[in-house]
């Protein structure tokens, strides 16, 4: 128990240091964008937060499918953990995007397809978390949540392709597009480093959140 605590603390500090590093380099080290200037630096937190949201919800999807197949409670806990962390990152992606939007577009929010589908995706996963709260019996909760987790994932490709399928205010993808990324190598390196650091933060948070879910379940079944 104590050993695991120490590993959690040390790895947590390591991940925090990694995030601090990419944040510092994103803020001051990399050159500004030739068109937007310094405001474009918001990309290095906005894009990773949005990416981690996708990643988290994919994990919910995969674990939900796995749970329905295998009925392993660990998959259910992982899905619950990933959903909560994903909701947090998606919320932060919307908040930082809103600030970037105010600075460049001239507006905090707009009912553009990308923003609208993202809001729907966020609400769907908030509903997923609320749904879990309403069912107290573990196996039933696992089944219901897994079914919802499969359906809710339909939102995710909709969010990604919204900028390509429909006209809107939000720009098209820079990196996840057919052909070369439309971004300079230095800026791309910074973006990828940010995505990597945020993904590690996601992994650490989900690990801890899964542990919490396990502890809560243990408290019930062992009693």
């Amino acid at each position: 128990m104590m050993v695991r605590q120490t590993i959690a603390s040390r790895s947590g500090r390591l991940v925090a240091a990694g995030v601090a590093l990419v944040v510092a380099s994103g803020l001051v080290l990399v050159p500004a964008d030739a068109s937007q200037g310094d405001v474009q630096r918001l990309m290095y937190v906005h894009v990773p937060a949005a990416w981690v949201g996708y990643l988290a919800f994919f994990v919910v999807f995969a674990c939900s499918a796995g749970y329905l197949w295998r009925r392993d409670p660990r998959l259910d806990r992982l899905a619950a953990a990933s959903a909560e962390v994903g909701v947090m990152f998606t919320g932060l992606a919307i908040a930082s995007g809103s600030i970037w939007g105010k600075a460049t577009w001239g507006q905090w929010w707009d009912w553009d397809p990308r923003l609208t589908t993202t809001a729907v995706m966020l609400l769907a996963y908030i509903a997923y978390l609320l749904l879990r709260q309403t069912v107290s019996e573990q196996r039933r909760r696992g089944r219901v949540a897994a079914a919802f987790g499969l359906i809710a994932f339909l939102n995710v490709p909709l969010v990604h392709f919204s900028v390509l399928w429909w006209r809107g205010l939000h720009q098209a993808p820079t990196v996840l597009r057919p052909g070369d990324p439309t971004i300079d190598h230095v800026l791309l390196a910074q973006l990828l480093a940010s995505v990597a650091a945020f993904s590690l933060a996601y992994a650490w948070l989900v690990w801890q959140r899964t542990r919490l879910e396990g502890l809560l379940d243990t408290a019930v079944t062992r009693d």
């Binding site: 050159p31 964008d33 200037g37 577009w105 507006q107 720009q171 820079t174 800026l187």
Partner: peptide, 13 residues
């Protein structure tokens, strides 16, 4: 209202 739709192309200054 005038909103700027900026491009997805980024270049280092």
């Amino acid at each position: 209202n005038i909103l700027i739709k900026h491009s997805e192309v980024y270049e280092a200054l």
